[in-house]
């Protein structure tokens, strides 16, 4: 749309003067809020709002057959739906490359940090629990990655494991009776930086994303490790920019972790 192009040019011009349209510092988030346990039917849920962006995460825990090469581990899966309610550019249908990338970036962070101890989710030989995290974009106004990662993390943290019931050889989950939290290790949050007109912005809103040439995301853990990273978009980053964004992600993570 032509109005998007005009807005993008406006954002680029402002950045030359070291300004952002909403008056934020280049390395500042919009206000962040997390609503926890928003639903009763799923085992865990959370809505993360960053400014006007809203992402919902739901966690279901089910019995599953383990992967043949991982017989002693529970399953973890992250899915993502770009629902047409969230933006005019989102179309119903099979997941497109944007939603696949988003789900996989969130998945990599949680998996690499061993956030969920999957070895403790074995019910019986050949029977494990599967943790299914589904991300649902409600309102797209920029920086879906950080909102999705925080919503997923928060939902995983408040998820309650259903009671396992055994009838002879048959195992069943009693979703009415929930016992304890998931066996959790370190938490993960992500920080996403967009390169707009040569400058780097934290937590871009949708207009800034439209003006951006690419992004870099770092996943950081409670103890200050880097557990995941993804560069996306055609922009390149120098080694110096890369180093300083790692440090910035680690610095920003304290404030994000407190909200989970």
């Amino acid at each position: 749309m032509i109005s998007d192009q005009i807005k993008a040019q406006f954002i680029k011009d402002l950045i030359k003067d070291n300004k952002r349209a909403d008056g934020r510092d280049f390395m500042a988030y919009r206000p962040i809020e997390i609503e926890k346990n928003v639903f009763e039917n799923c085992e865990g849920s959370a809505i993360c709002k960053i400014g006007d962006t809203k992402v919902l995460a739901g966690v279901k825990i089910d019995l599953a057959t383990p992967f043949p090469d991982r017989p002693n581990e529970g399953m973890l899966s992250v899915g993502c739906e770009f629902s047409p309610i969230a933006h005019p550019s989102f179309q119903a249908g099979p997941p497109d490359e944007r939603s696949i990338e988003l789900a996989r970036v969130v998945d990599r962070g949680i998996r690499a940090a061993n956030t969920i101890d999957l070895t403790k989710l074995v019910v019986a030989p050949g029977k494990v629990m599967g943790v299914f995290i589904d991300l649902y974009i409600l309102d797209y106004n920029g920086n879906l990655t950080d909102a999705a990662a925080m919503a997923a993390m928060s939902a995983v943290k408040n998820a309650i494991v259903p009671k396992v019931e055994q009838d002879g050889e048959v195992y069943k989950l009693n979703h009415e009776e929930r016992k304890h939290h998931l066996p959790l290790g370190e938490s993960v949050v992500t920080c996403t930086f967009e390169k707009v007109n040569g400058s780097i912005l934290l937590d871009a809103n949708i207009d800034e994303e439209n003006a951006s040439s690419g992004r870099l995301t770092f996943g950081t853990t409670t103890t200050g490790k880097i557990c995941s990273a993804q560069k996306s978009g055609l922009a390149s980053f120098t080694l110096e920019q890369f180093d300083s964004l790692i440090d910035m992600s680690l610095e920003q993570r304290h404030a994000l972790m407190k909200l989970l």
């Binding site: 998996r111 690499a112 853990t221 995941s228 980053f237």
Partner: peptide, 10 residues
């Protein structure tokens, strides 16, 4: 310059 970076692990 870095054109692609995808990392997982601790």
């Amino acid at each position: 310059d870095i054109l692609l970076f995808q990392m997982e692990g601790l």
